[in-house]
């Protein structure tokens, strides 16, 4: 007989039909973005997450804001924008009674941002050509594969990280001859793929015990 916990109940014949009903919602905040800002004041990002459980699957919604700015002798550049990611996850620790998770997930992501750039294009024969753009309503979309771990620390408090691989970026650019440099939530726009890592603290509000599969003992 499997042990019960405050957070889960073993799946049996009486409740198996309820295993795909969400039993709670978890809210998270990224700690890494604000922490990195202490070391690199060019790049500021905030991110929050909301997820819910559907048996050993889950649905994630992540939203964030990012700013990047640098001024030097070559260029004055700044970017500011928001991003949103939505997608499912599968939990490989479906038998864990404390709802710890090791997940693989997919996301579809959108971002909307503005860029300002002032500088010069240097051409050997034509010399320095001034460039100045103030671009609003830049939009991008991309796909992500994620993997992550979330561990219950105490009661409803979790901590964990997500590694993400972003690819297939596309976007609409306003009628301005400037290629997006930094895409919020994605990174450098010229890259066909980028990596990301975020460290979260999360709080789960539970309205029912989660039915978990019972690990068979030999």
């Amino acid at each position: 007989m499997a042990q019960e916990s405050p957070y889960s109940v073993p799946i049996d014949t009486t409740n198996s039909s309820k295993q795909y009903m969400p039993t709670g919602v978890r809210f998270g905040v990224d700690l890494l973005g604000p922490a990195l800002y202490l070391f690199d004041t060019r790049n500021l990002s905030y991110e929050i997450t909301v997820d819910t459980d559907l048996s050993n699957f889950g649905m994630m919604v992540e939203a964030g804001h990012q700013e990047f700015a640098e001024t030097n002798d070559n260029v004055e550049y700044s970017m500011k924008g928001n991003f949103l990611r939505v997608g499912p996850e599968v939990n490989f620790l479906a038998t864990d009674r404390h709802l710890n998770s090791f997940t693989f997930g997919l996301r579809y992501a959108w971002s909307s941002f503005s860029e300002t750039v002032v500088g010069e294009v240097i051409e050997d024969n034509w010399g320095a050509v001034p460039v100045s753009f103030d671009i609003e309503n830049n939009k991008s979309q991309w796909v992500e594969m994620t993997t992550g771990v979330r561990v219950r620390l105490w009661e409803g408090i979790f901590t964990g990280y997500i590694f993400r691989f972003r690819f297939l970026r596309s976007g609409t650019v306003p009628d301005v001859p400037f290629e997006p440099y930094y895409v919020p939530g994605y990174g450098l726009g010229a890259r066909p793929s980028t990596w990301g890592f975020r460290y979260y603290v999360l709080y789960r509000i539970q309205w029912a015990k989660k039915p978990v599969k019972v690990k068979k003992k030999n």
């Binding site: 640098e70 030097n72 070559n74 260029v75 550049y77 750039v117 500088g119 010069e120 294009v121 240097i122 051409e123 050509v129 460039v131 753009f133 001859p177 400037f178 290629e179 440099y181 010229a190």
Partner: peptide, 17 residues
């Protein structure tokens, strides 16, 4: 022709394609 400015990096500056 079409010409698009792009920022290689803040350290490297702008280029045109």
């Amino acid at each position: 022709y079409d010409v698009v400015a792009k920022l290689i990096s803040p350290e490297c500056g702008l280029d045109a394609s």
